[in-house]
Simulated assay, not measured.
Amino acid sequence: MNTHTTEVRSTFAVWRRRESYLFRFDLALEESVTTRERRSILREIRDNIEVDAAARGIDAALDSLGSPRALARSFAEDGRSNRPSWVRSIYWFTGLLLLWWTLAFTFTAGMLSALMDNGAESAESYFLGLLVSAFNRDSGIGIGWEASSVVAYIPLMFMVIAAIIAGRLWRVLTRRR
């Protein structure tokens, strides 16, 4: 009789749990240590998780490590937590860019839908400073965007500023002094 009480999971589920934990740990660790140190620490933690998960199960292995942020703090050296977070800034920029594209495409699709409903051939409008044109003709349908003024670049400037603030990128300049 097998008295082993560890829950048997699929290999994918174990991999997903481990990699999710390591991803969050890596994000928290990025602000504290150099890239070389971070890779070494991640390799060590990954090996430890694999060994512990084989013996006790993935849930017990991850529970014994605690939260990824607390584990990352234990590896931090004094005075090094002021490093810029490049990954966080990329996530913020990409997230805001995807949000802007989604809103712009939704606006444009709404314009095109209105054209099709009322039978007009073409229309132009502005979305956050961006000239949006749509047409519905017998030959086909289409949309177009034109950035003809500085106002159209305000969302891009907003995304860059959000990335700088989220990633604390000004620390690159202050660290070199």
Rank of each mutant, 00 (worst) to 15 (best):
P84A: 03
E37R: 13
E77K: 15
V33W: 05
R83H: 08
F105T: 09
E44N: 06
S81E: 13
S67K: 14
A61L: 01
I45M: 00
F107E: 10
L22I: 05
L98E: 15
F93P: 04
S74M: 06
S20F: 00
S20G: 11
E50G: 03
A60H: 13
L22H: 02
L98F: 15
S89D: 07
T106G: 14
A70Y: 06
G95R: 03
D52A: 13
L99Y: 12
L98H: 14
E77H: 14
A53E: 04
E50H: 08
A76S: 06
A60L: 10
T94C: 07
R80W: 14
V87S: 10
E30Q: 13
G57K: 01
D26R: 15
I45D: 00
L99K: 09
Y21P: 02
A104S: 12
E30P: 03
A28H: 05
F105P: 02
S20V: 04
Y21Q: 01
P68G: 00
F107P: 04
A54F: 07
L62M: 11
E30W: 06
S67M: 07
S40I: 14
V87E: 03
T34K: 10
R38Y: 04
Y91I: 15
L96N: 00
A72S: 08
L27A: 05
S64G: 07
S81I: 11
G66W: 12
S32E: 13
G79L: 00
T34V: 11
A76H: 07
T34R: 09
E77F: 12
L98R: 13
R88P: 01
P84M: 04
R24N: 07
V87M: 05
A55K: 15
E31R: 09
S85L: 04
R83F: 06
A60W: 06
S85Y: 00
S81A: 06
D52G: 06
D78G: 04
R69M: 08
A61M: 03
S40P: 07
A53I: 08
R36W: 09
G95N: 07
R24W: 05
L97A: 09
D78C: 01
A53G: 03
A55H: 07
I90Y: 12
L71D: 06
W86Q: 09
L97S: 13
N82I: 11
T94R: 05
N82A: 13
R56G: 01
L96S: 07
Y21L: 01
Y91R: 15
G79Y: 00
F107T: 05
L103E: 09
R88W: 00
D26I: 00
N48P: 05
S20N: 07
G79K: 00
Y91E: 15
D47E: 13
W92S: 04
